[in-house]
Design a protein around this nucleic acid. Structure first.
Lengths: 211, 211
DNA sequence: TATTCCTTGTGATAAATTTCACAAATCCTG
DNA sequence: CAGGATTTGTGAAATTTATCACAAGGAATA
């Protein structure tokens, strides 16, 4: 709502609150306090309230927040109430896993086109979609008006694929390749740092001499 | 090295520096400045120096850092120079993708046991490993002295699997389930928040009215 | 209705993280 | 070897993020 700068961390936590609210809602409760939300998320209750206030005043003193209303509100704030057509670049192991991943569909991210640069794969059918040649990314996504691309190809090819997505007018990229993609400022990139997470785990175990 | 508190963010960036150093090394360069590293990582050069100094003094004024030495040092700091036996809990789409994922093997994470609670799957072979019943997690990982578990099952079953891992003496868990696992303090959990990343992307696009 | 109990929203404070800026160290050139 | 050009490591300052603490609003009870 407000146009102040909202901390990236707050946005990330919004997602967590939504998940917790879903659980509380399914358990049949109608209201929840910031204290309870904080406890379940492993945070401070003031932080929960501050985070929520960035987006509006949803609480009632003495009572807390209305679970289903807050859940619906967050869903809307995050734009998760609409369907979003998505293109998948890279039909390898990870790509295929994401193709079958229910979490994407549940959130309205509908994979409509899939690409690979492996001659062996192009033309084959996966989950009802024909694998297309990466060279056709720009044309295809422009034609289908696809807004989001998911990149699951090796780093070496990731930038080139990103360029094709951008040429086709992509708005956002979910990038699984361990590389900092160079994109124009109008394009939003969110990186999923799989390797980094793994290496962090290794570090913490190593530090405690547990390996 | 030091026992001061090292910011979690610095540890995460260590991983990024390592990746960049690898690229510079492969390109044939022998030294690199903090300015160059910062530029490639999209950071401030003072930050790069501060991050590195947490672990020791690796640079030479006027020259910068020795690429391959720094790379090797970071690898060692992160404990990535040793092989780590890993158990995979959940041989679904994501689990199978990780099973074939080279990134794990490259970093010394060797998947040695795989589990699922689906009767249909138990007993089948995947990537040369027999899928075992989740009820045997504790015994099996204790027997094989497995230190790390990767959880790729739905949230509803994740805590129960984590408990079995802990009972078997697991040291670290890489958790893909969107749930805050409750574990004793001696166990390190690193969460991979796939859904949250996706939702963040949705939020940023939605905010800019791009959906 | 009055009173007590909760819980929100928020200004103030504290803590963590990032950036600035510069002395000191080293390299490189002539 | 002198002098200029770099680049590190690091205090200090700035910025960002998290926590505290409390007035004010509303619910619940009697």
């Amino acid at each position: 709502m407000e146009n102040y700068k909202i901390p990236k961390k707050s946005v990330e936590r919004l997602s967590i609150y939504k998940r917790i609210l879903k659980g509380i809602m399914d358990a049949g409760f109608t209201t929840v306090s910031s204290r309870e939300l904080a406890e379940r998320a492993g945070l401070n209750s003031a932080q929960v309230r501050k985070d929520l206030v960035y987006f509006g005043q949803f609480g009632t003193p003495g009572m807390g927040y209305h679970v289903s209303i807050l859940h619906r509100t967050i869903t809307k704030i995050m734009g998760l109430h609409k369907k979003i057509p998505v293109a998948l670049i890279g039909v390898g192991n990870l790509g295929q896993a994401l193709l079958s991943y229910q979490g994407f569909k549940e959130r309205g991210f509908i994979i409509e086109s899939i690409f690979d640069n492996d001659r062996e794969k192009v033309g084959k059918i996966k989950n009802g979609l024909k694998i297309m040649d990466e060279r056709n990314i720009s044309i295809e996504i422009k034609k289908k008006n696809i807004r989001v691309g998911i990149i699951t190809i090796p780093s070496s090819a990731a930038q080139s694929a990103a360029n094709k997505l951008i040429k086709g007018g992509i708005k956002g990229i979910l990038n699984f390749a361990p590389i900092e993609l160079k994109v124009p400022s109008r394009t939003t990139v969110v990186n999923v740092a799989l390797c980094e997470k793994l290496e962090m785990l290794s570090y913490y175990l190593s530090k405690r001499k547990l390996l």
